[in-house]
Computed example of a mutant assay.
Amino acid sequence: MRTDKLHIYIYIVSTILVLSMLYRIMKVNTENTLFVEKKDEYYKETAHNTILEENLYLEYERYVTTLQTNCNNISRCGPKGDTGYDICVDPLYKPKRPCLVYSFGSHYHFEFEDGVHKMFNCQIHTFDPSIPLAGHSIPKHVEFHLIGLSNFDHHTIFGWEMKTLASIRRYLNHSFTTLDILKLDIEGDEWKAIPQILSTISNKYIKQIVLEVHFGRHTNKLKDDGYRRFNLNNWGDTDSFTQINVLKQLKHHGFNIFKWAINPRSKLRLQHSSKGSVFTMHIISLKNINVLN
């Protein structure tokens, strides 16, 4: 009798152990399946987001490389490369004394200003708060200001003084003076500054804008293959969709592209497009078809 009970006990214990092992195996397999499914969902979502982002890059490149108006006479102020800019010198747009030029972003490179001075002898104001003045030489034909352009007046955490275009124009007594050329190369801050400029009547007194556009996200340093890679942060802390809308606002307010050029150092590889790559920085020249004289 005792032997039978012992056999039954051993059978029950063995069955419990086997069932326990089977449960653990099934649980691990289930968890692995769920992990794989979640991993697949993550990669699908990541790929989907990447495709959407790449489509915005393609839309951006199509937009800035499509001419919206014509300029019959174009002059280069400054050398070839990213320190010179193309401006329209058709009769309505050609700077004539007394003429006024604002140049935002210089890093103490004044080739553009030198070209403007040589060709038109305008009053030139250059603005850049990012580097102290000490140790730098300013050309005699340039009035230099340690002020940056923004969508509101403030000081940054670096101590830089930032102002709106309207505030700067008031400060210099230029509120209703025609601005012959507005040059912007402000490392992504254009996405905040431009909507503020367009929201005021003073945009009617700007004849033309030359602008280096920094689109999408910051990119890492140029790789050995000649391409850059995505970074995490957007230029100007502004999403790509909004950036495209800002460019469209320029056209809505009369600023039409008549010339464009790529920044060759901004080539970005695309993973899901047959095009293969885009450039994320362009220099565009725009004339204001609604300008008030």
Rank of each mutant, 00 (worst) to 15 (best):
I74K: 06
S75I: 03
R76W: 03
G78D: 03
P79S: 14
K80M: 13
G81P: 08
G81S: 13
T83E: 07
T83W: 05
G84Q: 06
G84A: 09
G84I: 07
Y85K: 12
Y85L: 03
I87S: 02
I87F: 00
V89P: 00
D90I: 03
P91L: 07
L92W: 00
Y93F: 10
Y93W: 04
K94R: 05
K94D: 00
P95N: 05
P95R: 02
P95K: 01
K96T: 05
K96M: 02
R97I: 00
R97T: 01
P98L: 03
C99T: 05
C99Y: 01
V101Y: 02
Y102Q: 02
Y102G: 02
S103W: 02
S106M: 11
S106W: 01
S106C: 14
H107R: 14
Y108I: 09
H109R: 14
F110M: 08
F112A: 01
D114N: 04
V116R: 01
V116S: 01
H117W: 02
M119S: 05
M119V: 00
F120L: 02
N121V: 02
Q123S: 07
Q123P: 00
I124K: 00
H125E: 09
H125T: 07
H125K: 10
T126D: 11
F127M: 13
D128I: 03
D128G: 04
P129K: 08
S130I: 09
S130M: 08
S130D: 08
I131L: 09
I131G: 06
P132D: 08
P132G: 05
L133K: 11
S137Q: 07
P139Q: 14
P139F: 13
P139T: 13
H141W: 09
H141A: 04
E143R: 14
E143Y: 09
E143C: 06
F144M: 14
H145S: 14
H145P: 09
L146W: 01
L149C: 11
N151Q: 13
F152H: 14
H155E: 15
H155A: 13
I157V: 12
F158Y: 15
F158C: 11
G159M: 12
G159L: 12
W160K: 15
K163G: 02
T164S: 15
L165Q: 07
S167L: 10
R169K: 15
R169Q: 15
R170Y: 12
R170S: 14
Y171T: 12
Y171F: 10
N173Y: 08
H174W: 04
S175L: 14
T178L: 12
D180L: 06
I181Q: 04
L182K: 08
K183C: 05
K183L: 06
K183Q: 15
L184W: 08
L184S: 11
L184K: 08
D185C: 08
D185Q: 13
D185L: 06
I186L: 10
I186E: 04
E187F: 08
E187M: 10
D189G: 09
E190N: 10
E190K: 10
E190Q: 13
W191D: 03
K192A: 14
K192L: 12
A193P: 06
